[in-house]
């Protein structure tokens, strides 16, 4: 069911007119121009909440490991709890990073020919770096 509304702004003058051929339900289902509603915003918040304890944990751990040998780091990562939290840190960090950088690009890169490649490079780099960190942690966890 679609409703045809002649919408004209009260203060915009008589020359400003548009035909809206969409029902109210259709507008709501469309979830706005980005087609995903508040999903991006919400995931940014969820990851930031997760990063609060993970960051505190990682800073304490990093300060204990800095200056030690590779064998000490491997020994530390052999503990499943350490490896789990380190893997979670890497995953959540890069998810939050690519969400944030996406907004920066969308805000400042206006040329469509540059915007899409920039987004692809950022997302690809975040994915590969995150994967590299994750596989390194797993290798340390399994083989030392």
């Amino acid at each position: 069911m679609s409703e045809i509304a002649k919408a004209s702004a009260t203060k915009a003058g008589p020359d400003l007119r548009v035909d809206v051929m969409q029902s109210q339900l259709g507008r709501a289902r469309g979830l706005g121009s980005a087609k995903s509603g508040t999903h991006h915003w919400w995931v940014e918040r969820v990851t930031s909440v997760a990063l609060i304890p993970l960051t505190i944990w990682f800073v304490i751990v990093a300060l204990r490991l800095v200056g030690h040998t590779r064998a000490d780091v491997a020994h530390w990562a052999a503990n499943p709890i350490n490896a789990t939290l380190a893997a979670a840190l890497v995953i959540v960090t890069f998810h939050h990073t690519q969400l944030g950088l996406q907004v920066v690009i969308e805000d400042y890169v206006h040329a469509e020919s540059l915007k899409l490649p920039s987004l692809l490079v950022i997302k690809g780099a975040a994915f590969l770096l995150g994967l590299a960190g994750l596989l390194s942690i797993l290798k340390l966890a399994f083989t030392g």
């Binding site: 590779r70 890497v90 960090t93 770096l129 290798k139």
Partner: peptide, 12 residues
């Protein structure tokens, strides 16, 4: 994050 990943990859 580049240093973070470098550190993990180097350790592994």
């Amino acid at each position: 994050t580049l240093l973070l990943v470098w550190w993990f990859v180097a350790a592994a």
